[in-house]
Simulated assay, not measured.
Amino acid sequence: MTQIPPCPQHTALRLAASGVPVLPLRRGKVPFGNCRTCAGNACGGRPNMKSAGPCRCPGVCHAWAAATTDPAVIVSPEWAGAWRQAVCVGYHPGGAGLTVVDLDNADAIAWARTTLPATHTVPTTRGEHWIYRGAMTSHNAVRPGVDIKSAMSYARWLGPGTGTMTTLPDAVRALAVKEEATHAPEEVASSVPQGTSWDRSVATGCRHTDRYVRAGLERGLALITARTESGAGSQAFGVARFLAAQHTRCPGPCGLDAIAAQIVAAAVSVGVPEPYAQRAVANGFTTGKEHAA
């Protein structure tokens, strides 16, 4: 007997009922284009987008930002035409508090099995989706055949999958820091203010002694600058994560901006592009605070 594939709209309603924001995907497995009013983002974009705008168009506009858990929207006349043309259902992982590590080929899967914690897995056409509990920023091509889909992104719904979902690990967050060769040229261009350093004048609410803070920072900077061939970006993430965790119980301020500037400068000094270094440190600080909370 031929099995009839589930109706995309019915699948969407079932997912929405479980708290997963959904949207229809058209041929090519991509979101529908904007309506005339929203074309070219002339409407200013939706309030939940990176650059928040005023648009409240009832149609399926603005790609991932259209995803919803509201059944009234999903069955609305404005969405009806899209469902008639839909080939599958998309969902917004970040809106559901999830992160999808999209492994696009066998090599990527083999890498994940030796590097990342096991979690809930869904087979795809060419590889697998590894789904973790917890949201983060989305990034494409973090390494060959690997994309991260979470906040401000969409993924295809490919079925329930198998395995127990685990908490988003630091190993995945660290992938958001693009690894580059870290051999420093003779002079590295940087916008990090020269002479930026931590001292008690910017840390009047820190509960630690000057010696404690300086010793930890110096050890961290030494670890980063020792990475002259590769890995300085990831090391900067780790240093920032550790140092941020030490200050979560301080009344503040602790001068973390100055500490961040020194970590970024150390990574840049061994050839990490400054935008990547800044992202690594920002992610590390966020993760450190969350884990210590």
Score class of each variant (00 low, 15 high):
D147N: 15
A155P: 03
H183L: 12
C7H: 13
T196M: 14
A171V: 11
A245K: 04
Q278F: 00
E187R: 13
C35G: 05
C35Y: 01
A226M: 05
C57H: 01
P24N: 03
L221G: 07
Q235K: 12
G145D: 06
Q85N: 11
A63M: 12
V75M: 03
P93K: 11
P47N: 04
R46Q: 07
P275M: 04
G53V: 09
V192I: 15
V89G: 03
A63F: 10
L13S: 13
W79Y: 06
R46A: 07
R143K: 14
I109W: 02
K149Y: 10
P193F: 09
R46M: 11
D70M: 06
T124W: 05
N34E: 09
R241V: 02
P117S: 10
N140V: 08
V142G: 06
H139M: 15
A236I: 03
T248P: 00
Q262K: 00
V172D: 09
F285R: 13
T68R: 12
A232G: 02
A176K: 10
A267H: 03
P6D: 14
I224W: 09
R27E: 15
H183C: 08
R249H: 13
H208Q: 09
R279C: 03
A265I: 00
A39C: 01
A118N: 11
G145C: 08
D102Y: 09
E78I: 00
F32Q: 05
P275C: 01
R14T: 10
Y212S: 02
N140D: 08
D199C: 03
E187Y: 12
R143S: 13
Q235G: 00
K289Y: 12
I148Y: 11
T286K: 15
P5Y: 00
G231I: 04
T166M: 08
A155R: 03
S191F: 10
H139Q: 14
W64F: 12
I263A: 04
